[in-house]
Structures are given as C-alpha cells and as structure tokens.
Computed example of a mutant assay.
Amino acid sequence: MPYADELTARARALVSRGGPRRVLGIAGPPGAGKSTLAEAVVRAVGADAALVPMDGFHLADTELRRLGRADRKGAPDTFDAYGYGALLARLRAPGHGETVYAPSFERELEQPLAGALPVAPGVPLIVTEGNYLLLDEEPWSTAVRPHLDEVWWVAVDDTVRVERLIARHVEFGKTPDGARAWVERSDEANARRVAPGRARADLVVDIGTGRLSPPAAPA
C-alpha cells in the first residue's frame, strides 16, 4: 500500500499520546476493504495493537428469524450496537491486569463466536472496523461513536466494491445469481445508508488511488 507508512505513523501517534487506551475506527461501505486495511494496520503496529471487528456483534440467525430480519442480515438493526458500544467502553478502561475477551464472526458459519478475541491488558491501541461506526442514527451515534478516538473512512470504486461483494457471497455458498441479487438488494442499500458518514471521518483512505485526504476533499 503506497500510504502504509503514513497510516502506520498516524496509528502510532494515537498510542504516543499516552493516557488511557485508544480506539481507532475504520469505517466504510460493504466491500470497501475495511477488514484488509484494519488487519494491515494492526500488523504494522505490532504488539501495541489488537483488532476487534464490529462483525462479532451480528445477531444470531435464530434471533434474526424471530425478529423477522433474516432477509436483511447486515443492516444496522441486525447488530447488537449497545453491546458493541459496551465492549468498546470496557476496552478503553479495563480493570487492572484484565484480559478482555471480544467476539469474532465466523465467516464459514456466518455466525458470531463469543470470547474468541483476547485483548491483553498491556495493549495500548484497539483497531475496530465496521460499516456503521459513523452512522448518524441511534444507537450507533451515541453508543459507539463516543468511544472512538479517530475514525478513517475507506473509499473504493463502486464497481470494484460490488464485484468483491458478489465474489465473497459466492465463496461462502450463494450462487452467482443469488449473490448478485443479495448485493443489489441488501448490501447496496446499506452502502447508501452509510455514505453520509464519509463527511464525519477524520481521514479518507482511497484504496484505488492511494490518496489520503480530509473528508471534505475529493478522493
């Protein structure tokens, strides 16, 4: 990544401030490359960073069926936003010597997995990523955003992003036609919903061009 050194330095600058543990958020539409960027930042920072994705707070399929939301899995109201915010608050101020266990999301099962991500007490930076970190709607705006010290927005060409999403759904079991239909109906609705969040980010990372810019500037 042409911007890797600059992003690593920016992440390390959060740690260098001292004081309480810091939380860096990486947001953007579905398929933008948030997970890839978050993983790269954590690798670059090394032992001073831990990755805790939002996806561990997907509601289980049984609960989505009970609520009548299974056909919209991935929408904002199919996550436990309050639980995610509570974990971020706990990560920011853990008890002395406390290892905090966070959930992950098992892609092959398409289900959350509790207690899968241990965060050791000495780690000064948490990197978290997800679609809705900058969503200006309750409960995301009050339960999640206040716990993030800085948020980066990942931008990418929409054509590239949509093709990535289709390939991902095919990889995990959908037919090509079924994958495209799901993306057009569900993922793209979520992409449109989160798009205004770009203007609220601290930094825009354009994956295609390698350009870093303030949120108001064209990427």
Rank of each mutant, 00 (worst) to 15 (best):
Y3C: 14
T8P: 06
A9T: 10
R10F: 07
R12Y: 02
R17Y: 03
R22L: 07
L24H: 02
L24Q: 07
G31V: 05
G33E: 05
G33C: 08
K34N: 07
L37M: 12
A40V: 02
V42M: 05
A47K: 11
D48Y: 09
A50M: 10
V52R: 12
D55L: 14
A60W: 10
D61W: 10
L64E: 12
R66C: 10
G68M: 06
G68T: 00
D71H: 13
R72C: 03
G74V: 11
A75H: 09
A75T: 01
D77G: 02
T78Y: 11
D80L: 12
A86P: 02
A89I: 00
L91P: 03
R92P: 02
G97N: 06
F105Q: 01
E106I: 00
R107H: 13
R107A: 07
A116C: 00
P118K: 01
G122K: 00
P124E: 09
P124K: 03
L133F: 11
E137G: 06
E138W: 13
P146S: 07
D149H: 10
E150H: 04
V151D: 09
W152C: 08
W153H: 09
D157W: 08
E163N: 05
L165C: 04
R168M: 12
G173E: 09
K174Y: 11
T175W: 14
D177W: 01
G178M: 05
A179E: 02
W182G: 00
W182P: 00
S186W: 00
S186L: 07
N190Y: 09
A191Y: 08
V194W: 01
P196W: 15
A199Y: 15
A199I: 11
V204R: 08
G208H: 03
G208V: 06
R211Q: 12
P215L: 00
A217M: 01
